[in-house]
């Protein structure tokens, strides 16, 4: 057996199992969703094996039959989801960036402890943590009590069931996702480069703009993407903290599958989210390539 053949066999042996696993458990369900999104909904759930493009028509505008009608509300919920997910990325970046800087400058022991604290919320059930936020934000909650106590407001403010509550909740949930990639790139930052920049005449702000920001950009983009994707499809946070007022695309999909029992329409909505994510990933890949080439 030649060396090249042996290497190839080794590679197949190593990658075979994970490839089969990924194909079966990730790609197949996605393909099933894709096929379902072009079928007709069954009367009592499930699907009828008859081609239909009206699931997409209901979202995007051409459906105009007696039962299947275009409704702009779906697109506006989708756009709201994009907006809320983007805002979540921005707020968690604003929190994580200085935090990552601060932690990266700590002594090794305290640093490990601080990172442990950042990931600590992972160890408690998501639902429990979100209900804790309900207790904080509700009209009789800690926040309102405090604000009224110091006299900033006489009436309790409606924090709950608003965009604010959803963004707050999602930021809270996704901060570790943003923090860890950011921290990885900030920790690698060479302090000598910052000194070199100031030695060559740059103010702190110029150094930040020209050295720190570009050097940590991979972390910002990486963290942004792995925050944005689950935030876009999230339905737990908006259903606990957004209530009926702040519906996101994830809630809509969940309803189609579990309450409305319209699997094809739910699949079509899921494909919409999928497309948005893929577009984002392609754009990021392009940007990364261009950066490498330049």
């Amino acid at each position: 057996m030649t060396l090249a053949r042996r290497k190839l066999l080794q590679l197949v042996g190593l990658l075979g199992a994970p490839t089969v696993f990924l194909l079966f458990f990730f790609l197949c369900p996605l393909l099933i969703m894709l096929v379902y999104s072009f079928l007709t909904p069954g009367l009592y759930g499930g699907v009828e094996w008859q081609f239909s493009h009206l699931n997409y028509g209901r979202i995007l505008g051409w459906a105009n039959t007696r039962y299947e009608k275009f409704d702009p509300v779906f697109l506006s919920i989708f756009l709201r989801s994009l907006r809320l997910a983007a805002l979540t990325v921005v707020t968690s970046l604003l929190v994580s960036y200085p935090a990552a800087f601060w932690i990266s400058r700590m002594s090794p022991g305290r640093r490990d402890f601080a990172i442990f604290l950042v990931t600590l919320p992972f160890f408690v059930s998501l639902i429990v943590r979100l209900f804790a936020w309900v207790l904080i934000l509700r009209p009789t909650g800690v926040l309102n009590q405090g604000l009224m106590g110091i006299g900033l407001t006489s009436e309790p403010i409606e924090f709950l069931y608003s965009d604010f509550a959803v963004i707050l909740g999602m930021t809270y949930v996704f901060i570790p996702f943003m923090f860890l990639p950011l921290y990885a790139s900030i920790e690698k930052l060479d302090v000598a480069q910052l000194e070199a920049s100031s030695d060559l005449g740059a103010t702190r702000f110029q150094t930040f703009r020209k050295v720190v920001l570009p050097a940590t950009m991979p972390g910002i983009i990486g963290g942004g993407i792995i925050t944005f994707i689950p935030a876009l499809g999230n339905f737990i946070v908006p259903s606990v903290l957004g209530g009926a007022k702040v519906l996101m695309i994830g809630n809509l999909i969940e309803q189609q599958f579990l309450s409305a029992r319209n699997w094809p329409f739910g699949s079509a909505l899921a494909m919409l989210v999928m497309t948005a994510v893929l577009v984002l990933l392609v754009v990021q890949l392009r940007l990364a390539r261009r950066e490498e080439a330049s």
Partner: peptide
């Protein structure tokens, strides 16, 4: 440091590795 008319060659160079040679030199 940024207002002193001196420049330094650092021990491990501290070059900006996200920039080209030209941008480093012209920084």
């Amino acid at each position: 440091a940024h207002r002193r008319p001196v420049n330094t060659v650092f021990q491990r160079y501290a070059l900006f590795n996200h920039m080209s040679v030209a941008r480093n030199v012209g920084y």
